[in-house]
Design a protein around this nucleic acid. Structure first.
Lengths: 207, 207
DNA sequence: CCCCTTTTGAGAGTTACTGTCATTTGACAT
DNA sequence: ATGTCAAATGACAGTAACTCTCAAAAGGGG
């Protein structure tokens, strides 16, 4: 997927050390500065130097936290959660339906959690090729985890061509949905669009 | 897709002017130099400056011919041909089958045409994230053309979500096939793999 | 309060890519 | 051939995303 905001409900109440808390703050500061600057000036016009200045850290630090500029916008902590959720679905459920349930839940969470950030990210995905490309790269990792989960539930290898095609198609469809949604003023109901897309896959892409 | 080499069988015997012939030569020289250097030193270690030197042109010229370094490796002139071929398929054929026929033909052509280049490109797609990313970008354009063709043949809008999901899934599957093939020593029969992938889509991704 | 480890910032360097301008070179008419 | 014009090239300067290295600063534990 592509969400971020609050990482899954804090497992560790047990107090992060000051160090860790500061790191988290820096991370957030960088991201917020980035989103703000991009909203004001556009993506390409915003340099990492400006981001660093706005977040009050050095450029070095920005790169320590995010490997690329695109990652500042995209980073995503949902994969592990989704993996667990998929594994938790009933074993006899068709994989496509498991994915549907999990995605629906994920989307719901994101929209409650931080709708604006999600909206802005979707728009960037629509408009900035570099971001879309990086997003797709990120999806490659998601794809791996999804393949693992699907493989283990169906008793196939995760390198099985059919498994790979499954995950690649599902994620590609999800990406199209997101872009479609962003391209239509973000007015549609995401859950409905996801259902349509998955139904289309389920029906064998008959047009 | 992702092929290049000789552009579709020269429609114009009627003599390219010296100018055009020279341009073509330069294009080829740059690409050959690039492939050679990459084979020798790896992708990242090969700079555009080196490529320019090896092709005996200036760096400026390299960038005039190819917008990015990745494009030198990826550029692809097959889209228009494939678009025409799809439109030429019988109108009552299911789109997935039209795609199957055209892809099969395209793969055949490529493998006859310039198997080595195709092999090396696949390997780069597998190994170099930047190339894979750029490849995916390229696929976005292919996706557009495929959507146009499919839309016009099914009487849908090309912005129709189902059409978008169709093309995105097909191309994602094709990408997986290519990577799978490259990752397995390029020993399998590509046509067979494509069939398996498309069958999987046709069957509604039931696992 | 001191020591040790982690984090940070400063600075220098690389490389892909952009834009500009003067020079060259093919095309074409005379 | 020769002159003229447009297209292609090369030289150059500049930007911005990264990378590396090293010394200064700051948290944590005794």
């Amino acid at each position: 997927m592509a969400a971020s905001a609050s990482p899954p409900p804090d497992d560790e109440q047990p107090r992060l050390g000051l160090r860790e808390r500061k790191k988290l703050k820096t991370r957030v500061a960088i991201r917020e500065a980035t989103y703000r600057l991009i909203a004001e000036q556009g993506y390409e016009a915003t340099t990492v130097e400006q981001i660093a200045a706005a977040a009050e850290v050095s450029p070095s630090t920005v790169f320590r936290y995010f490997p690329t500029k695109e990652d500042i916008v995209l980073t995503d902590e949902f994969d592990p959660v989704m993996e667990a959720e998929i594994r938790a679905r009933p074993a006899d459920e068709p994989p496509l339906e498991s994915v549907r349930a999990v995605l629906r839940h994920a989307v719901e969470t994101i929209l409650v959690d931080d709708p604006e950030e999600f909206a802005q990210r979707s728009k960037l995905m629509l408009e900035i090729p570099a971001v879309r490309a990086r997003m797709t790269e990120t999806m490659a990792e998601t794809s791996l985890m999804l393949s693992r989960a699907v493989a283990s539930r169906t008793g196939r290898q995760e390198s099985d061509l059919e498994v790979l095609v499954f995950t690649a198609s599902v994620l590609a469809a999800l990406r199209e949905v997101t872009i479609y949604w962003a391209g239509h003023g973000q007015k549609d109901d995401l859950a409905v669009l996801i259902d349509r897309a998955l139904d289309s896959l389920k029906g064998g892409l008959a047009l």
